[in-house]
């Protein structure tokens, strides 16, 4: 573990930012931690996860001022390509351990006091965010998933990783079984699904498996709608009052910075 202070950015003059690096087994994860000048202890710390472009600096730049304004501790991890080529899923690779290690370290060092965090993820980060919340709902104050390419639906009929049915050949951790046992707790969480209204392009990064297209739709917009509805349906089937909010961001395609400017980060930080 190493901690190195970095200079406050011009647009977050009152907050303190620190960079840390934690070793998790044979891998390492780095993170930038921003501590606001006045911490609002009623707000859970925010962990904001980058997508497959690993644009952690963009995430920090977009969330920093908002978190500082409301007094929220912000943690922006960075999963390196070298150590975490597939950070979006929890099975053979264990990015969940990296997130738990970060949370525990920040508690042990007194940076945060809550055991729960609000977790945001964009695109590939949204995939990790919702899978983490499905396995560790008790560590989540609220879940914010934005523009994921596809989702793990609370549906036992679809095989993992698209649903919670047993995969033909489970790899590593049996995440389907674990998430299934947490499903009731997961469905009680406040869950916010965001997507750009123009996020309909079928770009190279979008998975186009026929099974995903059949169950979730052909674009990120359709898949986000489908996911929000599947959450509500699963909660209804279990008589759980769902706290699912679906937000379309007008004029936004698949671009984090544009979504942020369209008000997504402000919405996330104040919810």
């Amino acid at each position: 573990m190493c901690i190195a202070p970095i200079h406050p950015k011009a647009d977050t003059p009152t907050a303190t930012q620190k960079r840390l690096c934690l070793h998790v087994g044979k891998k390492a994860v780095s993170a930038c931690v921003q501590i606001p000048a006045r911490v609002n202890s009623s707000l859970a710390p925010m962990i904001a996860l980058h997508g497959i472009s690993r644009n952690a600096d963009d995430i920090l730049h977009a969330f920093g001022p908002e978190c500082d304004r409301v007094g929220r501790v912000l943690v922006v991890p960075r999963f390196s390509r070298k150590h975490w080529p597939h950070f979006q899923t929890i099975a053979r690779h264990r990015p969940d351990r990296a997130l738990l290690a970060l949370m525990d370290h920040l508690r042990q060092t007194g940076v945060i006091s809550s055991t729960r965090v609000s977790i945001f993820g964009y695109s590939g980060g949204a995939q990790l965010a919702h899978r983490f919340a499905m396995i560790y709902p008790q560590r989540i104050a609220s879940l914010h998933v934005a523009a994921a390419g596809w989702y793990c639906a609370p549906d036992h009929k679809q095989a993992f990783p698209m649903g919670l049915g047993q995969p033909a050949e489970p790899e590593g951790l049996n995440a389907a079984s674990l998430a299934k046992r947490q499903l009731r707790n997961f469905l009680t969480l406040p869950i916010h699904v965001y997507v750009g209204r123009e996020d309909v392009e079928r770009d190279d990064a979008l998975r186009k498996d026929p099974s995903i297209e059949t169950h979730q739709g052909r674009s990120r917009l359709a898949r986000a709608r489908s996911y929000a509805e599947s959450l509500r349906r699963a909660a209804r089937a279990r008589s759980i009052p769902a706290q699912v909010e679906f937000t379309e961001l007008p004029g936004c395609a698949h671009d984090f910075s544009i979504c942020a400017k369209a008000g997504m980060t402000r919405l996330v930080c104040t919810r």
Binding site: I90, L100, L178
Partner: peptide
């Protein structure tokens, strides 16, 4: 010792959001 496995056992044993 794996937090994910242990967590699922906790849920199975009845730890709920309400308890927390």
């Amino acid at each position: 010792e794996d937090p994910a496995e242990a967590n699922a056992l906790a849920a199975q044993a009845g730890v709920t959001e309400l308890d927390r």
